[in-house]
Amino acid sequence: MEKLLEVKNLSISFTQYVQGLNRHDLRVISDLTIDVNSSEIVAVLGSSGSGKSLLAHSILGILPYNAHVTGEIKYNGKTLNQELKEELRGKEICLIPQSVNFLDPLMKVSEQAIGECKDDDEHKEKKIRQREIFDKYGLDESVDDMYPFELSGGMARKVLLSTALVGNPNLLIADEPTPGLDAKSVEETIQDIINLKKEGKGVLLITHEINVALKTADKIAIFYSGYVIEINKAENFNSADTVLHPYTKALINALPVNGFKFTDGVQPLEETLGCPYWENCPDRFDKCENHKPDLVNHDGIMIRCFKYEEADNGA
């Protein structure tokens, strides 16, 4: 197992105009640190609209121009700058998009999977590869000449996945691959993602559905108000006792299968001075109000909470 992707202290903010002429920086992702190894699935779990998709956009270098990024992203030990991102995307790093809306409606799916080629030889080579992959996912030759609107739901999903795999990437980023799918397709998607891992690929799964994360991932990172507050092993998420952060505990207890337990409080709208969960935290200290905890390693679990930092310091 080797480290494929290392994201260190990544912050993404947007410049926006508020009320007339004043510009204002809107922080969407703060101080995000996460690693993905080969043969590993890491899920980033957060409510939809929380900005976690921007992590994917940032790795692929497709953020809009008014985004401001700090921190470091490394791929295979090399720092990813914009040039390298452009070189690697589609080859080493691929995105599995959410829906067929991401495909060009006026282009045959096989051509989209093959993508841009320098000359005919490269095209031929890639064509063979594309056929292999499509075969593997049970898409016969008639699919090659179809346009996106002709695909059924299940086929579309397979096309999206195969398209991502034509370049034979080592790292796949799946951005919300399951919403809007029926139960059977969700199962298939989960199986497909697990199979990628068995082939030795690293997968970064971005989702808001905890069930999908639980069934596929090795590690799950919990995203709260722009911060990753806990990165824990997936099996620990089966019970609230084995996760550390108070919010994660609340989240696990709130699942319908775990009792649908009520916890008060909402995510803060604005950047807080202290811990983002301070307002709702049952275990808070005075310190939490004005100081932000760092993401620290506690027995192999990454946690952003003073409770555990204190315990470690005490010991």
Partner: peptide, 14 residues
């Protein structure tokens, strides 16, 4: 509540 996190889901439904 499909697009919401589990904690919010409980709050809203209750």
């Amino acid at each position: 509540s499909t697009m919401l996190d589990a904690v919010t889901q409980v709050q809203i439904w209750q």
